[in-house]
Each structure stands twice: as C-alpha cells, then as structure tokens.
Design a protein around this nucleic acid. Structure first.
Length: 266
DNA sequence: AAATAACTCAACCGCGAGCGA
DNA sequence: TTCGCTCGCGGTTGAGTTATT
C-alpha cells in the first residue's frame, strides 16, 4: 500500500513521555496515515501496531480517564449481555472510553459484580444485568441516578473515584481543549479536569463543578448528555465522534486523517 | 517492616478481514 | 485466484501497585 516499512528492531514495553510526545506531535501535524510508517517518520523505535494502540488507548483526544460511573458500568453490563465480548462495539456507545479500558474493567471488576448478582439476585442493584436488554438499558441512566440507588454504590464510588494522573493527560489537555494558558495555569486546569473525570460523571458532577472553578473544561467536550436512549445509541455507531465534532478535530489537527502515505512522505 | 497475595491496566500477540497487485 | 500487506479486534501477559497477613 505504499507504506514505508521500518526494518529496525522494535522497542517494547512502556512508553516514555518523550515517545508519547513524538507520536502525538507527528499525528497532530500529519495525521496518522498508515500506521506502519509512523514509527519511521516520527523517529520512534516502535512498530506501527504499537503506535496505533498507544494513540487509540492513551493519546487520542477526548479520552476519559478515571473511574467508571455506575451508569457507565450498567451500560457496559447491558451491552455485554447483548453484544458479548465485542469490546470495540461496546466502546462505541461509551464516549471517551476505549475497548481496552472497558475490557480491563470488565475482567477486573464487572465480571465479579455480575457473578455476585447472579449469586445474590436480591442484591441492592436495581438494574440487575441478568434482566438487561436493550429496553432495560434505556433506563440505566434513570436507575443509576436514583437517590436510593444504594449506599453500596456511593461507597464503592468513593473508594475508586480518584483517577491516576498520567503524563499523557498533561501533555494533551491544553492543546485539545484549545486553551492557551501559561504552563502553570494549564497544569492546574488539567489536574482539575482529570479529577472531574475521575468522579462519577452522572451523579455528582454538577454539584462538584459548582465547587470548583474552571468547570467549562469538563463540560466543553461533553456538549451532549452523557446518556442517551438506547435507540439513539444503536442508530449511531459513531457515538465517540459526538464528543469531538469533525470540525473540531480539523481545528485541532491541521493534518488530514487517513490520507495516503505516499502523499505524506513523498 | 517484610513477605506475599490480589488486583489493575498498559502493552503484546495472534488471528481474521479487507484491500490492492 | 492467490499472495502479501495493513489494520482492527479480542485474548492474554506481566510489571507495577495496593492490600493483607
């Protein structure tokens, strides 16, 4: 397909901030084009596959970091019941979440939650996944917003609500939010932003926002309600795209996505 | 304080689909 | 049709972290 192939031995393991920066700058400037030629042109000793994964799961704009809200978890459980392990399809319905993130969360937590529910059907969870269908999924927002949703929910949310602050977040947010702050102020904004996303975004984010300044950042990307009807979800296979409009992406990325590698690197 | 078990999650691997030559 | 290649997906691994003894 005209893509230049890197023949050097590929580096493996965790990405360094410097590698992230190189990859990010390259994609911002030129778009990703064909992944196999990215490492060569970006000066990375990685293979294209690894670059793609890093971009999709970590560097891509609009990603949420931090704990899953209960509404998100309920949605995952309901979608999983219908779609099975189609993580990428499930991820389409959860804006800002990656298939890998959802898959990890499923294996580390939701699977257990589900088995608990099966073992104890009288559990406090109202929207029991074993009864989930697309119809019931439609109600997940309402059910999770219930004030009596159970103390368990809140306690567990409190337990896991603090997100990790990862270097890619301080790399990306300033640019992708279109804020031209000085470095010190943008760091403060970034931390605030990532903290907001670490919280359950359906239940308490509004009150939380009122307590902190700079809430526009958190709401800027989420211009649409977080949870829409299942019909809307199913009709829109590009749920993630709602988060950042196409024009918005073009604004952020002067490069054009998915153009031919030959055009790029001739 | 040290050992170790349990957990999380970023990253790798292998496979299949799709495409062009 | 076949071959070679890229891409995307799902399964899995293993390093790092946290909890428990």
């Amino acid at each position: 397909m005209g893509c230049k192939k890197a023949t050097q031995k590929h580096k493996k393991g965790l990405w360094s901030p410097d590698e992230d920066l190189k990859l990010k700058n390259h994609i911002i400037k030129y778009g990703h084009g064909c992944w196999s030629s990215i490492p060569l042109n970006a000066g990375l000793k990685r293979n294209g596959k690894s670059c793609r994964l890093r971009w999709i799961n970590y560097l891509r704009p609009g990603l949420k970091r931090g704990a899953f809200s209960f509404a998100e978890e309920d949605k995952i459980l309901a979608l999983h019941r219908v779609l099975g392990n189609k993580w990428s399809q499930i991820a389409h319905h959860l804006p800002g979440r990656t298939d890998n993130e959802i898959k990890n969360h499923w294996h580390s937590y939701l699977k257990k939650r589900l088995s608990k529910l099966v073992d104890a059907p009288s559990s406090s969870f109202k929207s029991a996944p074993q009864n989930c269908s697309f119809d019931s999924l439609e109600n997940t927002e309402a059910s999770s917003a219930d004030t009596d949703q159970s103390i368990d929910h809140q306690q567990e949310a409190d337990k896991c609500s603090l997100p990790k602050v990862l270097f890619a977040e301080w790399l990306s947010l300033d640019q992708f939010n279109g804020h031209n702050h000085s470095s010190s102020s943008s760091t403060a904004q970034d931390l605030k932003y990532s903290f907001d996303y670490g919280r359950s975004n359906s239940e308490d984010s509004s009150t939380h926002d009122q307590q902190l300044n700079g809430e526009a950042i958190a709401t800027e990307i989420h211009t649409k309600p977080n949870f829409i009807s299942i019909d809307d979800i199913l009709r829109s296979p590009f749920g993630f795209d709602d988060q950042i409009s196409e024009t918005g992406l073009v604004d952020y990325f002067p490069g054009v996505f998915n153009f031919s590698c030959d055009e790029l690197y001739m």
